[in-house]
């Protein structure tokens, strides 16, 4: 891979310096600051540190003993698994299907992307209406299908026992489903773009050799998509770790009964609502560490042939 063109390193500066300067100033430096904050005692967002924590690693101990943190970790791992299986899975299937049709491919490409275009704030409002306790779209539907228990009081008032989609029994579905749904289109576009970068000659050659659709997919498309799929995987893991806006709009702080935390929402709540800036920073560090570790693992597993 290391061609002779790229033996001379001087142009490299031009390529790398601008981007990394930006990153250094507005991403890495602030994050280093964030790491320093994890050892400090900080009473509020605007306040300067009041000195070191006692012991200085206090927040890291808390990270492992905090029961809500455990809840957040558990939910986030579920989210990561679902993201990989459903989001990337559905996106891959849809992309392969779209690749196989002639008429309307453009249409599907356009509409699958719609959910990403809408801001999470707007989507959150929408899903809240869909899963609303009294008179939400799903509950209206269940009621009309006779799936909800009702009760008539002596004074003739009818009581409907609405299904609470945000209670302990249902919240995981209600929380994960919108996130899954929204980002399928995202991975879809990436995979479709990858598919289009595969030379059609390869397929023609394979067709001449008598390979049918499934074999073409299995032996040509998937291996060639490996890089792209690997990118998707990494994006899915890191995305899931910091998912915030949609669950936050729908569930707020740990609903229901502190069983609904995700690492992203827990960190936000600690930093901006509980004013635990130093502990919030610690959770941020954990998110990054987990992200790096998990995506490295997935790179190792799925991309053994390629370097990096």
């Amino acid at each position: 891979m290391n061609s002779m063109i790229y033996k001379k390193k001087t142009p490299l500066l031009l390529f790398l310096v601008p981007a990394f300067l930006f990153l250094a100033a507005f991403l890495f430096y602030p994050f280093v600051q964030n790491i320093i904050n994890t050892f400090m005692k900080i009473g509020g967002l605007g306040r300067a540190a009041e000195g070191l924590n006692t012991p200085w690693y206090e927040n890291y101990i808390r990270l492992f003993t905090d029961p809500y943190m455990r809840v957040a970790m558990k939910n986030t791992l579920v989210l990561i698994l679902c993201t990989i299986v459903f989001q990337v899975g559905i996106a891959l299937i849809l992309a392969l299907l779209v690749d196989g049709i002639r008429v309307g491919a453009q249409f599907f490409r356009t509409v699958y992307f719609f959910p990403i275009v809408i801001s999470a704030t707007a989507l959150g409002l929408m899903f809240n209406l869909i899963f609303l306790y009294k008179g939400g779209m799903v509950n209206q539907l269940l009621l009309s299908l006779g799936q909800l228990e009702t009760d008539v009081r002596p004074n003739g008032k009818v009581i409907v026992y609405w299904l609470d989609w945000k209670d302990q029994a249902h919240f995981l579905f209600t929380m994960l489903m919108p996130v899954m749904w929204q980002y399928v289109g995202f991975y879809f576009v990436i995979i479709v773009t990858g598919l289009n970068n595969i030379s059609p000659d390869l397929f023609e050659a394979a067709a001449l050799d008598g390979a049918d659709g499934w074999n073409r997919t299995r032996y040509i498309t998937l291996p060639l998509l490996r890089n792209v799929l690997c990118t998707c995987l990494v994006l899915a893991i890191t995305g899931a770790l910091k998912v915030f806006d949609l669950p936050w709009v729908m569930f707020g702080a740990g609903m229901p009964e502190n069983q609904g935390w995700l690492t992203g929402t827990y960190m936000y709540d600690q930093t901006f609502n509980k004013m635990n800036v130093d502990y919030g920073s610690t959770i941020a560090v954990l998110i990054v560490v987990l992200g790096v570790v998990l995506s490295n693992i997935s790179n190792r597993v799925f991309k053994p042939s390629e370097d990096l």
Partner: peptide, 20 residues
């Protein structure tokens, strides 16, 4: 550098916003 970019992708915006 590659690892830095990977890590940078995971920085939650809430953790960098105050220093920024």
């Amino acid at each position: 550098l590659y690892s830095l970019v990977m890590a940078g992708m995971m920085f939650p915006v809430f953790s960098t916003i105050i220093p920024v």
